[in-house]
């Protein structure tokens, strides 16, 4: 019995010691480092819900010690202005902590391009569309004076005068352009004025102007991210929120590989009877003639009256 007890003790001691030094031993033997590359989709229209999902994914990546790099897979025509700005800030915050690389599917335009701008490398395909660096807004129709709605200020219904709105939009444009220049720096081969034209560029044209870096697929982006993180061996994990992803951009919708996707109308963003301005960072082709129209009977009275019955 004594021999058995001694044997047990020795085994236990060996287990403890072995487990304790095992990580060091395996690492030392292989001579390699490892980690996980998180793939986070920025897909569909960028609204508050989509931004919250991506923000949570980025937070998860930042707080998980096993994640060494992030790859943003972009497939979006943009969305709300504030939601897009929030994404830009979250991606920039993540890029300050670990390598962030972007891979563009069909489109990363306007607010979506804003979001991926802080990436250290942007991979595009020849058919990918990027750019559309600009802001659009529906202008509030003149509603004052009226005797149907009581307000405490002349700008309560409209939000402000048209000229003030024009300058606010111009400030947003300046912020957008400035953010792109801060993020892309010397890689850009385009003037601020030319960038502000808000054109979209296909893959090679985007690379020529420095809006993207390399033609490549998603795997290329993952490998670049892993290499940049300094790991030889890596796993990938996709961090994607639940629920259906909504698309206004038909190109992005067709290209999307998300399990649940839904095509929605542009009027989801501008509403049917909104009186105040709605500021968006969306690619221009999403604004279809069926989305923003002049009501023929009120052409001079109501400059922009959206028609909500038609799909984009």
């Amino acid at each position: 019995m004594r021999a058995t007890s001694s044997f047990t003790l020795v085994v236990l001691a060996a287990l403890v010691v072995g487990l304790a030094i095992a990580p060091f031993a395996t690492g030392g033997l292989s001579g390699s480092s490892s980690g996980t590359v998180a793939v986070i989709p920025i897909e569909g229209t960028i609204d508050g819900e989509r931004t919250a999902t991506v923000t949570q994914s980025l937070e998860t990546a930042r707080n998980d010690d096993s994640i060494v790099a992030v790859v943003l897979v972009a497939n979006s025509g943009g969305g709300g202005a504030a939601a897009s700005e929030e994404l830009y800030m979250q991606v920039q915050r993540t890029a300050d902590e670990m390598p962030v690389v972007a891979s563009v599917d069909a489109v990363a335009a306007s607010g979506a391009y804003y979001a991926i701008a802080p990436s250290e490398e942007i991979y595009v395909k020849p058919a990918s569309q990027v750019g559309s660096v600009g802001v659009l807004a529906t202008l509030p129709p003149p509603l004052e004076p009226n005797e149907d709605i009581s307000t405490t200020g002349p700008a309560k219904l409209s939000g402000g005068e048209q000229r003030a709105l024009e300058h606010e939009l111009e400030t947003l444009r300046g912020s957008f352009v400035n953010a792109i220049f801060e993020s892309r720096g010397d890689r850009l081969d385009i003037s601020e004025a030319e960038l502000s034209y808000a054109r979209t560029y296909a893959g090679h044209d985007a690379i020529d102007r420095g809006l993207a870096d390399t033609i490549g697929d998603r795997q290329s982006a993952v490998e670049h991210a892993a290499t940049s993180a300094g790991v030889d061996q890596y796993d990938t994990t996709v961090i994607r929120g639940n629920g259906a992803v909504t698309f206004v951009s038909q190109a992005a919708y067709v290209s999307a590989d998300t399990p649940q996707k839904e095509s929605i109308s542009f009027t989801t963003f501008i509403g049917n009877e909104s009186s105040g301005p709605v500021v968006l960072l969306m690619q221009p082709e999403l604004v279809t003639t069926s989305s923003i129209v002049h009501n023929e009977t009120e052409t001079t009275e109501t400059p922009i009256v959206p028609d909500g019955d038609d799909d984009a």
Binding site: H167, E168, E170, G174, S175, V177, N178, E182
Partner: peptide
């Protein structure tokens, strides 16, 4: 820094 005062459009 991308959103400093320099980007403001002053009427």
């Amino acid at each position: 820094t991308a959103f400093d005062e320099s980007v403001r459009s002053v009427p």
